[in-house]
Design a protein around this nucleic acid. Sequence first.
RNA 1: GAGCCCGUAGCUCAGUUGGUUAGAGCGCUUCAUUGACAUUGAAGAGGUCAGAGGUUCGAGUCCUCUCGGGCUCACCA
Length: 747
Amino acid sequence: MLDTQYQAKNHESQIYKLWLEHDCFNPDSQINQELRKNLKNEEESFSVIMPPPNANDPLHVGHAMFVSIEDIMVRFARMQGKDTVWIPGTDHAGIETQFVFEKKLKKDGQSRFNFDRDTLFKMIWDYVGENSAIAVDQIKKLGASADWGRYKFTLDQDIVKTVLETFVKMNEDGLVYRTNRLVNFCPKCGTAFSNLEVDHKEQSTSLYYIKYGPFVLATTRPETKFGDTGLAVNPNDKRYQQYIGQEVEVDGLNGKFKLKVIADDFVDMEFGTGVVKITPYHDFNDFAAWQRHKNELPEPIQIVDFEGRLTEAAGKYAHLKVAVAREQVAKDLEEKGLLVKVEKNYHNNLSVCYRCGNPIEPLPLPQFYIKVKGLTEAVVKKLDQGEIKVFGAGHDKILRHWLETLEDWNISRQIVWGIRLPIWYEIDQNQNAMITFVDEQKQRISGKLGDLLKKHSIKSIKNGLQNISAEIGAKYLVSQENPGEKYLQETDTFDTWFSSSQWPFVTLINNKPGDFDRFYPTTTMETAYDILMFWVMRMLMMGIYKTGKTPFKNVYLHGLIRDSKGQKMSKSKGNVVNPMDISEKYGTDALRMALVIRSSAGLDKSVSDGDFKAARNLSNKLWNASRFILITKAEKKEEQAKNCQNDELFSKKLQEIAKEITKNLNALQIGVAADTLYNEFWHWFCDQCIEESKKGLINQELMFNGLQVFLKLLHPFMPFVTEAIWQELVKEKIVDEKVLASSAWPK
RNA sequence: GAGCCCGUAGCUCAGUUGGUUAGAGCGCUUCAUUGACAUUGAAGAGGUCAGAGGUUCGAGUCCUCUCGGGCUCACCA
């Protein structure tokens, strides 16, 4: 007999073990094959690819949300007898992981510059290996019915091979190019980022009005003046007509110099004095202006380096950090009488690194890019044809907007932890490439390849290699295989999203034989809306490019989980809900139900302790209703055949509920389905029907059937408690199906 | 500046082809309780569905505008 209260802790791990023993999550298992055969639904496949969490991160409530929603979809499909698979995996999470690892290095008094890249990669590999079980274990604790036999990691050899194949194909199709352009560079993280990875923070700064020959101009970045290559005014600005096309002499901190004045529409006559200095290598607008006026202006000058310090080109200000140099320059300008005025408390947006929060420097760096126009157009076409359905409060419109405005994708990252670009530089042809490596004495050495080779062997350079910076326009080879001794491989790694954008097909191609044809295109991609453009959009682009088909038919975007007051959860606010704590305290079913009930695609959801308690109470209610029905069933055997007054009503309503839940789940109305189940089970089945059955108005056996139906309907939402009860029924030999997880969905 | 989303009970939120008397959880009031469950049951209070206008036999739901809140993108050097 059942206990009077359901104690989740006493059941959950055993139940999960039971599912694994019956191989319930594997579409090829006997139990699932039999189910499909019985339901005659063998043809229809249902596949979900799990958004791979960072391999070494503990889960947060967002992960619990995705596990809950995806598991509901998957369990529902499986019980309907569809050929169902949910493929789990973890992500190496390039910059995120390297960032964490570098913090650890710092604690040990080390830095990444002390190691050659192979050694560093191995160290991070081991570190991730030690921690990678965390995420996987926790996903299991959340009840995920994923097929662990098909688990993949983004750096698995076979995965990497396919990812590289895609890149080689893209290169052959002319979609890859290398160019010197301004990139968003984080000097702290030491790598470039795509536009999507840059945050904007409002700051209060000073606007400096500086004398430039006959002009005064306003700038927030006086320290970049050594990189000026021209001045610009609006072509319609009457004040400056006579200067357009002229050279003006400017008195600067490092002596006098000349700047040409150009006319360009991008200059706002209203702002400042209507005169702008053109500093192409340190400002995106200026770089664009320079490109438009290339034949009128000299070559740009780089005066900030990749560590955020001024270069030799800044004369006596060389080696100063940007912020320090700004103060110094302003002070010197003032002393020389070149500073006209300073507007304090000027507000503008500063670009900051999404990862570390430090200012992003626009810097010139030759990088590899992917042409996106053809890729995005193909996605738009599929959207137009209705081949992709997006569930999530207007995010389909946002997706479209992004697809229409996306710029070429910078895929180079200056980090070690990732998939290295299959780009090769022939040594003789690249004598001017800048190389950094660690020699046998652990000394860090930089210089031109040609010069270094005079003192060092190519072997020791290769062994200790940290970084290659090939010239603009350098010749290179794209090849998955090492083309030979005479080549050096590019040191940049792919943007993490380059590999994860291929996740739906690489996980299937490199899995059990036949999986790709069997499960691709996948049915539904489920993830948080905040990575719509990072991930979902790019999966669509890459999936269609590589396979000709959309990688998934549906996109379900869940919202962010917020605290009881609707505030974002953050460590500093101390309002973070740890899913594992909730699971421990109230049970995993309660956690899942509380997250999912009344949730709506694309909209955020608040949860509080009360919500978890309410859901916990539901699991207990389920337990006790079952207990009662089992007791009466045993006691009143003789009454089982008797017809009662409300039998017909009961059966009809029960069927209606099953139909409605099925309809809701098919339409991905998960929050509504959960809410309906909650109310129908509690307030109709328990409060009403059980009471009526006590009075002899509903037949006992019918009540038992009703219980089975509710256990099945609730199973995707609350898999543990429903299975725990079901196993009691199995023990009593009053049901045929051995495992609820692989039982038939009610009709 | 552009786009998107939201505004429904004291609080947090559901309400998807427009259709009886608008729902849930928590909170509140009163009562009940040895055939399961106090992690319970019954009854109840609480809503001009932000506001205005429109379409319609009928609007929380569709359209327009206004106000309020949030998010994202782009930013003026």
